[in-house]
Simulated scan of single mutants.
Amino acid sequence: MTSLPVNHSENLNHVRNRTKCKRYVCSAKTVKKRLPIVEWLPKYNKTKIIPDTIAGITVALTAIPQGIAYAVIAGLTPEYGLYASLTSGIMYLIFGSCMNVTVGPTAIMAAMVAKYVHNYSSDFAVLAAFIAGAVELTIGILHLGFLIEFISMPVISGFTTAAALQIASAQLKALFGLDGRSGDNFGDSVYNFVLNIKTIKLWNPILGFLSIGFLIVLKRFSEGCGRNDDTVKQIKWLISLSRNAIAVVIGMIIAYILKEVTDTEPLILIGEIGKGIPKVTLPPFTTTVANETYSFADMLQIYGPQSIIIPFVAIIETVAISKAFAGGKPVDATQNDSCWTL
Rank of each mutant, 00 (worst) to 15 (best):
L4G: 05
N11K: 10
E272N: 15
I64D: 00
L175M: 14
A128E: 08
I273P: 11
K329F: 00
A168L: 08
Q335T: 08
K22V: 15
I131N: 09
A132N: 11
D184V: 13
G158A: 07
A324S: 14
L165N: 03
V280L: 12
K233C: 03
T160F: 15
A168E: 01
N100D: 13
K22P: 00
A168W: 02
K32H: 09
L61T: 03
G75Y: 01
L147P: 00
L218I: 05
L41K: 10
V280R: 04
S322M: 02
R23K: 13
L61A: 09
Q171H: 09
K279H: 11
C26D: 08
G96W: 01
R23P: 01
L342C: 14
V72F: 03
K22M: 15
T87R: 04
R181Q: 13
S295H: 04
L76S: 02
E149C: 06
Y303N: 05
A55E: 09
P154C: 05
A163Y: 02
M299G: 00
S222T: 10
V31F: 08
F95P: 06
A162D: 05
S222L: 01
A163C: 09
N291S: 15
V319R: 03
T287V: 05
P205R: 02
P205E: 05
I167W: 00
K48T: 12
I197G: 06
K236S: 06
V261N: 12
P205N: 04
V117M: 05
N204R: 04
E223G: 01
G327H: 07
A125K: 01
Y44S: 10
G140R: 03
A114M: 11
T62M: 10
K279F: 05
V15H: 08
N196F: 13
V319H: 06
T334A: 01
D52N: 14
T77L: 06
P330M: 04
S88E: 06
E10T: 11
I73K: 00
W340S: 14
V15L: 13
P330W: 03
P5I: 00
D184Q: 09
L178P: 02
T341E: 12
I309K: 00
C26R: 10
F209M: 07
Q234K: 12
V101D: 02
G251Y: 02
P78Y: 01
T318R: 12
W340G: 07
R227S: 11
V217T: 13
F214T: 02
I94V: 13
L218K: 03
K20G: 08
T281P: 00
M112N: 01
P42N: 10
Y92Q: 15
A110I: 03
L342S: 14
G183Y: 03
K233R: 07
S295Y: 04
M299F: 00
D230I: 02
F130K: 07
